[in-house]
């Protein structure tokens, strides 16, 4: 019926022009802006990413892989994994505890607490390292005593972990708080009226609701923990094979003009970053509903 109507001679009198919706820019503007964005991203983001792998394989892929088996590379990888393995669970635990206290209860000073949790985002990593040196350095009261007891903090694993925990401190809490605010307290209250204990309520009601946001936060926390440079550089002492994490080892190799080795190790971290991004994007696409609130600062 409508087909016949559309075929009436009227069409020829008033040709229907394909016009853009009123809420859109002209095609030329759109193409220009898209081109501009892609150009800047290629120059600034994609090219640096690509050059890592180009430089790493400058003497062939075999040489790149070979350099990763050098003892200092192996120990750096091992140390970085160790640091992440301690840092991430600590901050995940803290993030859950903080989000629980902040979103399930009303208390005075909540805004101050949230600001304090966010504080590490705006402090220079070098200042973080400096603070740890001033607190735990061998020449301070506390640090001197700990060294005399046989527990050196600075220039050893504990300070590297502390520095990593500091710089990644807000990551998990930041992802969980908006999600838990959005979900409210009704489900937990229902579970409690049904006789569930506190832990049972948390494990069976809260945790399933926040699991994707938790994973999201853990991913970001892990990426930053493995890649932290400034804070760790100050407290690690850069002892080859002992306190050099992967980023520190990259700096040392680079300064010694061992370009292939430096870029190969950098390539491993770049791959980790890409995997992180892929997982993060997959989470965003699959579970957008549960993460929606988290993308607002």
């Amino acid at each position: 019926m409508s087909d016949i109507a559309l075929a009436t001679p009227l069409e020829k009198e008033a040709p229907v022009t394909r016009r853009q919706p009123v809420t859109q820019e002209s095609r030329a503007t759109r193409v220009t802006l898209i081109t501009l964005c892609l150009a800047v991203l290629v120059l600034l983001v994609l090219a640096p990413l690509g050059i890592i792998f180009v430089e790493a394989t400058r003497r062939g892929a075999a040489s790149a892989l070979q350099s990763l088996t050098r003892p200092e590379a192996v120990s750096a990888i091992r140390l970085t994994l160790t640091v992440a393995a301690i840092t991430v669970p600590l901050n995940a635990g803290f993030g859950i505890a903080a989000a629980w206290a902040i979103t399930k209860f009303d208390f005075r000073g909540k805004a101050v607490l949230i600001t304090l949790i966010d504080l590490p985002f705006s402090i220079s990593p070098v200042v973080v390292g400096l603070s740890l040196v001033l607190l735990f350095g061998a020449n301070t009261a506390l640090g001197g005593w700990l060294v005399s007891m046989g527990y050196p903090i600075v220039f050893a694993l504990p300070a590297i972990v502390l520095a990593s925990v500091f710089v990644t401190f807000p990551f998990v809490a930041r992802e969980l708080i908006p999600v838990m605010v959005e979900q409210g307290r009704a489900e937990e209250e229902a579970a409690l009226t049904l006789g569930a204990s506190g832990w049972r309520c948390f494990l069976t009601v809260t945790l399933p609701n926040i699991k994707w946001a938790l994973l999201y936060g853990v991913l970001l926390c892990n990426a930053r923990a493995m890649g932290e440079f400034g804070a760790v550089a100050v407290v690690s002492g850069k002892i080859r094979g002992q306190t050099a994490t992967m980023p520190i080892a990259i700096e040392m190799l680079y300064n010694e003009y061992l370009s292939v080795a430096a870029f190969s190790l950098a390539g491993v971290l770049a791959l980790l970053a890409l995997v992180t991004l892929a997982l993060k994007s997959a989470l965003e696409w699959r579970h957008a509903d549960q993460l929606a609130a988290t993308r607002r600062h």
Binding site: I52, L220, G227, E228, P247, I248, A266, L269, A273
Partner: peptide, 8 residues
Amino acid sequence: PFALPTAV
């Protein structure tokens, strides 16, 4: 830039 370590 968030995911790539700064040294890299």
